[in-house]
């Protein structure tokens, strides 16, 4: 964090980043819905080397009981990193960072869920980071929102997410671990693309007013692209399910 990006060239003069991407390019993104059998809904996301599983259980009874709300479902979220997901082994016990991220991810997802439909119940979202290479909270939101939809939870929209960074003075999309560590800025961002509502916005680093406006519009544009991939993953899942059902009828 202390090492200034000036000491490290993260972007070449012709605008190529260390992994060859242009500033406004996201990494290759793979989304697969319905990957964990026990969960009511699940998803696996690969964004470059950031790899994430998300599972949704619920709506189900709330335990402990006193946490239940009479007029809506409670959403609970646990963002967790596996000990081997980072360079130096991380203790499996939740860190302060993980507790904060669990909260902001929950608050990024909740606006999309029609919570009034399930009074006195809980919807639990579990996120496991298998391998971390930057933008894990954004990839977690992408995965969790697909998992929620694949669990059949009624939603106003999907939530798409993308981070914006600033490296050697240039605003870039979808930051990697190196770009986060040695760059000047990390701005995680999530929105409901169809409703134009920002549901997560954090900034760690210095930006002027114009830069913030530009960063938000870059992130919003990337979210639209990610949104299409999320919808495709859900469609693929339903085609798959239909096949299984049809085969079931035949035998």
């Amino acid at each position: 964090m202390s090492i200034k990006s000036k000491e490290l060239t993260l972007i070449s003069p012709d605008g190529r980043r260390l992994d060859g991407r242009r500033p406004d390019e996201i990494r290759e993104l793979k989304i697969k819905a319905g990957i964990l059998e026990n969960a009511d809904g699940s998803a696996y996301v690969e964004q470059g080397n950031t790899k994430i599983y998300a599972a949704v259980y619920g709506p189900r009874e709330v335990h402990p009981r006193h946490l239940a709300l009479p007029n809506r479902a409670v959403i609970r979220c646990r963002y967790h990193m596996t000990p081997f997901s980072v360079e130096e082994r991380k203790s499996p016990a939740p860190t302060r960072r993980e507790i904060e991220l669990s909260k902001v991810i929950r608050e990024a997802l909740t606006p999309a869920i029609i919570v009034e439909q399930f009074p006195s119940s809980a919807i639990d979202v579990f996120i496991e980071v298998i391998n971390a290479d930057g933008s894990t909270r954004c990839a977690s939101i992408i995965a969790a929102s697909v998992a929620l939809a694949s669990a059949g939870i009624p939603m106003k929209d999907l939530v798409a997410a993308c981070s914006v960074g600033k490296i050697n003075g240039v605003l870039v999309l979808d930051v990697t671990d190196v770009e986060d560590k040695y760059g000047e800025v990390d701005m995680p961002f999530a929105m409901m693309p169809n409703r134009n509502e920002i549901t997560l916005l954090q900034l760690d680093g210095i930006l002027g007013p114009e830069e913030i406006e530009k960063a938000i519009s870059m992130a919003a544009k990337a979210c639209k692209e990610i949104y299409e991939k999320q919808k495709n993953a859900l469609k693929e899942r339903y085609i798959e399910l239909r096949k299984t059902v049809e085969e079931g009828f035949r035998t």
Partner: peptide, 9 residues
């Protein structure tokens, strides 16, 4: 950004 609803840009 905090809270359980969203904001526009």
């Amino acid at each position: 950004k905090r809270g359980e609803r969203g904001l526009t840009a």
